[in-house]
Design a protein around this nucleic acid. Structure first.
Lengths: 187, 187
DNA sequence: TATTGTTATACTCTATAACTATA
DNA sequence: TATAGTTATAGAGTATAACAATA
């Protein structure tokens, strides 16, 4: 997966550092594998997607209400996507939604007893999977390093300008590999 | 996101190590942010999804043919999913498919000139994004550590039994947050 | 019978845009 | 006018199962 030839002929900007590329690919693949296994576990034990789990866990961890906007924060979603997921969770009896008394535009979301119970039921298996896949092969030193690095990276990426960072377009048109290409998010 | 209360009352298995949980969440969020930005770049400059880019890059890096099965390997896909993506890429003129002379059941896939050119055109921006988001805040030492850790993790996860690792079911039924729940993969 | 790949189909998820209602 | 959230809609992507063809 390393050592991609520089397409055909044209000049292709800065050369690639093979080491960096290797780190990048290893990171992406490892997390992809982890995420997949985690999703299998969540689906099997709680019939939840990872996103749904994140939403429930977030609500559980704050222990009270959150507005839809607050709930969406960090979970990279369009508003409508969150509305959709909240609808599912509400229908399943795992959360409640009610209008905020302070600001009647807002919706307050809270976990139900049942939602809390589900999180509690799913969490041990979740921890077990991450332990087996993620923590088992790591020494305490590794764990410390990884935590340090990923925390810094996360903060760095959070701080990035949410848009505008999209690099200059090179060629506006082509047969299009995917039929159409809506690619933006609204938060 | 740390410190989820252990659902309601019941006994919930091993307690969570807050440090581990923090590392886990930081990892997942950071990669999620990175992946999102990368997808924006690939879509903007090459009208490609990350998966499509991976397929093209893989073909480009081997410099020859791959069977569908070989191509799928590592990209966590169902066969039909790969067929779908290959169909898009072929229609866009980025790859070719032809029956294998050795084994007539197999399909040999190769990048076209155009596909190679596209990879070359997209790669600089891709590298730029990863550099800005991933490598910029890391020291050489960090990079080395991260590479070491992620390589080990990837190999560890690859070596895991693909199935059977699904933890024992706790409770088979519940109102179902997602309507239905097909959750398995076929590779 | 096992393997390679495709097709038909169903469903989940996400995004855009238009909309309502409140501030 | 700006903000919070919902709805309608459309499309991308992925999975299951049935299928055809080759080994």
């Amino acid at each position: 997966m390393v050592g991609i030839p520089s397409g055909a002929d044209a000049d292709n900007g800065p050369a690639l550092d093979p080491q960096q590329l290797g780190v990048y690919f290893a990171l992406m693949e490892a997390v992809s594998l982890l995420q997949h296994q985690v999703e299998v576990q969540l689906r099997a034990e709680g019939d939840l997607s990872y996103v749904q789990f994140q939403l429930l866990a977030r609500l559980a961890s704050v222990g009270g209400h959150l507005t839809m906007t607050q709930l969406a924060d960090g979970v990279v979603y369009s508003r409508s996507g969150l509305t959709y997921q909240a609808g599912l969770l509400e229908k399943a009896g795992l959360i409640t939604r009610c209008p905020s008394p302070d600001d009647e535009r807002s919706t307050l979301v809270a976990v139900t007893e049942e939602g809390l119970a589900l999180v509690g039921r799913v969490l041990p298996g979740h921890v077990e999977v991450t332990r087996r896949l993620l923590f088992e092969p790591l020494s305490d030193d590794d764990l410390h390093h990884l935590g340090d690095i990923m925390t810094r990276l996360r903060d760095h990426m959070r701080a990035q300008p949410p848009r505008s960072a999209v690099p200059r377009k090179r060629r506006p048109s082509r047969p299009s590999a995917a039929q159409s290409a809506p690619q933006d998010q609204d938060r």
